[in-house]
Design a protein around this nucleic acid. Structure first.
Lengths: 152, 152
DNA sequence: TTTGATGCAAAGACTTTGCATGCTT
DNA sequence: AAGCATGCAAAGTCTTTGCATCAAA
């Protein structure tokens, strides 16, 4: 898998990780440090299974349950995002890049990041006024927007 | 699954169904007629399981495998769409309303349609030029856009 | 010390598959 | 008649759970 020259993945220091987890109300554990590091390091969008494999190259004793628990915790507190699994046979994919961006989902299940400049143009184009209108009309608070372009 | 008396969804005649399937290269079967009718009738966004239940109220002998086969076929030829299952514990949901529209996905897994006027405003706001630029840059043809607003 | 996190294995949920039979074209 | 579609049940894949143990706060 190739490196995307437009992606700029942040590398956390141990200190930053500790601060981040603490701020989110999560305990700092060796497993979580490794999971988040690997999730940001491989700037693909791994499935739980792929992430487990990556993580086990660093610590072979980390369990599958921990991967799922951890990803759930990360998603729950906004450290990571779950990406589409709407293509047949799909496992969920995960993303730790919290800069809002658009995903390009290929028919075979691969997921790529849309380069930041284009992502911004797309996201900024969505009229704030429409979102407010919608929020009022349906009575739900909007907490995010997810845009996927489908490609082949 | 409940019937929504206020639904504006189109109701297919037997003729229309036959024509639609034929045009898409699918054979017309009793099962497919029922599945598509139910999928359009209940304007919620059922999971395969929910749809199976609805369909079985009409014909109790329709099998689970047929539901999955049929939905796969419908999605493959553009008769139906698969909607996000990115929330934990999620089964895929399906939608037969082919007018492009935006979905509002709640944290508990429920999916609602964003009203057509607002959906249009959001979708129309995405700059065509950016999509073309992206298509060129990544070398994939874009075949669709999926926008989900997250709410709670 | 207290409480949340981990690891293990089993269970659960969701989807796909193989194959014999039936139905559409 | 030919070939796709169906039904059944089993298998497969992905995810969650119960519980004893361990570690962070």
């Amino acid at each position: 898998m190739k490196t995307d020259p437009h992606s700029h993945t942040h590398h956390y220091t141990a200190e930053e990780l500790r601060a981040l987890f603490s701020r989110k109300g999560l305990r700092t554990t060796r497993q979580r440090e490794i999971v988040l590091c690997e999730l940001t390091r491989c700037n693909s969008h791994p499935t739980a299974e792929e992430l487990l494999a990556a993580v086990r190259e660093i610590d072979p004793d980390i369990s599958q349950a921990t991967i799922y628990n951890t990803l759930e915790a990360f998603v729950g507190c906004g450290i990571a995002r779950r990406i589409s699994s709407t293509l047949a046979g799909g496992a969920c994919r995960y993303d730790a890049d919290m800069g809002e961006h658009v995903h390009l989902v290929l028919e075979d299940g691969r997921v790529m990041d849309v380069p930041m400049d284009l992502s911004k143009q797309i996201l900024d184009a969505v009229p704030e006024s429409v979102l407010q209108e919608l929020s009022q009309r349906v009575g739900f608070e909007l907490s995010g927007i997810k845009i996927e372009l489908l490609g082949h």
